[in-house]
């Protein structure tokens, strides 16, 4: 040991620099950091203002009557019961229509379609683009479709669900494709090397492994649909519903439309109701997004 140290004694040394770096090297990152914080602050401040505003205005109306009462010409007797039920009916129907279709489309595109074929490339490009189309266009599309098949009264649960399904189908397809793509090739190889067919591999390995991703994407897409009003308004969604929707062909209203309606009324009481309903809608969205995040974290990367 000593002899080694002795032999190293004459080696040149190069101490690390200490102390502060020159000023100009620190200024730019600092400015940039402050800008980033400012951007974040702007976003957060707006959100907080909005929420505080809604809570202050609608807090007093956020109670049992909001859930149990039907709309009324008097704000004191009005509630959002049909809108809440209507939202549940429409979103439920949308989920049933969209998730199987979206997942199937994604599985086909990702696992079975020949990616080089022009037809599949056109579809792929279209799915990407459709996700960015304004929601009202889907309302128009649903309207045209319902007219074409001869539906006279278009404000029905299935009609609304159709419009919202068109809206979120591309989102679900894209989310599912990403989830499928995240399944390592080794898992597929391992299954195929045992003599499993492509179909068995997809059904028993790839899909189960992508369920968390599919669930997360679907919930986020449905929460987007839950907040939509435009395509439903186009279908002539009723703004004053005093009955519970009870089937696919039933007339309906939804929370965003009810909020839209109440906001347009002159009485202050209705504005408070709108705020209370917004609070409920926000709460629902928060729960859904929270669930999506929970699922994502719970099942993250098991391989």
């Amino acid at each position: 040991m000593r002899s080694l140290q002795d032999s190293l004694a004459g080696a040149p040394t190069m101490p690390l620099k200490t102390g502060r770096a020159p000023g100009e090297r620190r200024a730019a990152p600092l400015v940039f950091l402050i800008l980033l914080w400012l951007s974040l602050a702007v976003a957060v401040i707006f959100l907080i203002t909005l929420i505080v505003n809604i809570v202050l205005e609608g807090g007093s109306r956020f109670g049992l009557p909001l859930f149990t009462e039907y709309p009324s010409s008097s704000p004191d007797r009005a509630g959002a019961r049909p809108a809440i039920l209507g939202s549940m009916w429409v979103i439920g129907t949308t989920a049933v229509l969209t998730i199987p279709l979206g997942v199937a489309a994604a599985v086909h595109l990702e696992e079975f379609a020949d990616r080089k074929h022009w037809f599949n490339r056109v579809i792929e490009l279209n799915v990407q683009n459709l996700a960015a189309v304004p929601s009202i266009v889907y309302g128009l599309l649903a309207l045209a479709f319902l007219t074409l098949v001869g539906v006279r009264d278009k404000n029905i649960v299935i009609g609304g669900a159709l419009a919202l399904s068109l809206l979120i189908l591309p989102v679900i397809i894209i989310a599912t494709r990403e989830a499928i793509r995240a399944v390592p090739a080794e898992i597929r190889d391992g299954s195929l090397a045992l003599g499993a067919t492509k179909w068995q591999t997809t059904w028993r390995q790839v899909l189960p492994a992508s369920v968390p991703g599919i669930a997360t994407g679907s919930i986020l897409a449905l929460s987007r649909a839950l907040g939509e009003a435009a395509p439903l308004l186009l279908l002539g969604a009723l703004v004053f519903v005093s009955f519970d929707p009870n089937g696919l062909l039933s007339g309906f209203t939804t929370l965003p439309i009810q909020i839209f309606n109440w906001t347009g009324r002159p009485q202050e009481g209705f504005h408070e109701l709108a705020a209370a309903a917004s609070l409920l809608l926000l709460g629902l969205l928060l729960v859904m997004n929270g669930l999506a995040i929970f699922i994502r974290n719970r099942y993250q990367k098991r391989w």
Partner: peptide
């Protein structure tokens, strides 16, 4: 003609199901 890969690639399933998978699917 079976195959074992460079990187161990067990399925994200139980040990039992990893073994039972092949006989089941075939």
């Amino acid at each position: 003609i079976g195959m074992v890969f460079q990187k161990p690639n067990p399925f994200p399933k139980s040990i039992y199901d990893n073994i039972a998978y092949g006989p089941r699917v075939t």
